[in-house]
Simulated scan of single mutants.
Amino acid sequence: MIYLDANATTPLLPEVLDAMLPWLREGFHNPNASYRGAKEARRAIEEAREKVAALIGARAEEIVFMGGGTESTNSVLKWLARLVGRKSGRVITSAIEHSAVLKPCETFGEVGYPLARVGVDAGGRLNVDEFQAACEAAREGGGFASIMWANNETGVIQPVDEACAIAKENGLAFHTDAIQAVGKIPVNVGEVPVDFLSLSAHKFHGPKGVGALYIRSGCRFEPMLRGGGQEKDRRSGTENTAGIVGLGKAAELAMERLLKKESPVALRNAFEAKIVGELEGVTVNGDLLHRLPGTSHLSFTGCEAAGLLILLDDLGVACSAGSACMTGKQQPSHVQKAMGFSDAKAKSSLRFGFSCLTTMEEAMAAAEAVKKSVEKLRRVQGGSTGPVVVYSP
């Protein structure tokens, strides 16, 4: 199997598994107890906290371990909603956010919060002018904004630095869902002074079920989960020592790759070049100047993505038609609709995600499989093709 769905999840690196195993076996102790084994587990957790903090340019005490990206985003958004209050507090987000952000925000709107969902351009980038207007409208009554760092479907990197500055100018708290960005591109909370940031281990070769929330020093925060007071009373529940150690190791390895400027961008570019060069009616979607190095989002005229996924799976290529959280749903992606896609184009789109484990041989073999699958489906469906269309900002 050639795995090209790294936006959905990434394989656990051998080094990460090796780091975790001792804490699944002999290091099983509760890190909150007082005996030697427990203290060793606590030490391992704090070392992992330092590694995660280093990956995003934070301080260790600003990192709170969570059960994943969804818990991280929900925890901070629900706290901010309580903080600003629904009588006057405005909630500002974008039309292309992950459902872990959109659904809580929609719930806030249902119970009376003024909610603004800012649009994007044809390349999938935030409309900064519209965002500024929404922030200015919220200035008097207060509120908060949540804008993703990079989109999970298209890989398009958002102008988070501009959005954060605008929010701060208008006195609004700012959260970013950086789950697709952390570990893949440089993310530094010293350079982009967000108040809160969510990340998840399994997006950069760590284990599933563990993530973190960055809380800038000085920012108020009250937990969604209360209990034994772990994580300095910011997230109760006995810590997942093995998972946290795995997150720390994955963060350490990601930092090494970033410092060496290693990325799958060459594989992605070669993959796209072969497909676009040998097939008609292909669109490379999203802002080509601002996207994750390992994400390719393509549309194929005259084909339905559902059929292509079956053919590609038969040929040993794993990819997706969009967010893994939306698999099985028949309606076009809200991300693609926000970018102005027609229903036909949205339903003909596939997402390919490359990781640090992908090889050039796999990328080329996958491109050949895509070519064969598209040609076969077009013959079967009698689909017509148009000229190659590549979005360029």
Rank of each mutant, 00 (worst) to 15 (best):
D177Q: 05
S333H: 10
P193G: 07
T295P: 13
E71M: 08
D129M: 04
A58F: 13
M255T: 08
V118R: 02
K337E: 05
L77D: 11
M360R: 15
N170W: 01
P393I: 03
I96G: 00
A250R: 08
L115K: 11
G124L: 15
R43M: 07
A41M: 09
E262A: 03
E26H: 09
F271L: 09
I45G: 12
D121A: 05
C164W: 00
M224F: 04
E106F: 08
M326T: 10
S34P: 06
W79Y: 15
L4C: 12
E40L: 06
A150Y: 02
T238N: 08
L259C: 15
R43H: 10
G119E: 00
H98Q: 12
P223G: 07
Y391D: 12
M20P: 06
L309E: 13
G229T: 11
A273D: 11
T241K: 06
S34H: 07
K168A: 13
L298G: 15
Q158Y: 00
A6I: 08
A53L: 11
S320I: 11
V160M: 01
Y214G: 08
I2G: 04
K337Y: 04
K51N: 14
T283R: 07
S198F: 07
A338K: 01
L12S: 04
N32T: 08
C325P: 12
T238I: 14
M224C: 06
G209E: 12
D233V: 10
E362N: 11
H98K: 12
R59W: 12
L126N: 00
P264M: 14
C303V: 14
S72W: 02
A201N: 06
P293E: 13
E62V: 07
S323I: 10
E222N: 10
G190H: 03
I92D: 09
E61D: 14
A305T: 15
N30R: 04
R42W: 11
S296N: 12
I2E: 03
E191K: 06
K347R: 13
V380T: 15
I215E: 05
S320T: 12
G277L: 04
A58Y: 07
A165V: 01
F204S: 06
V390A: 09
H98V: 14
E62I: 08
F131I: 00
D177G: 02
S373T: 11
A167Q: 04
C135D: 01
V194Y: 02
E222G: 09
V245G: 10
V52E: 12
A306T: 09
Q331D: 13
V187N: 01
G383T: 06
A33T: 12
V276Q: 01
G69W: 01
L199R: 03
E140R: 05
L21F: 14
F108Q: 09
L83I: 03
A134Y: 00
E140C: 09
L213M: 14
E278L: 08
A138F: 03
G307S: 15
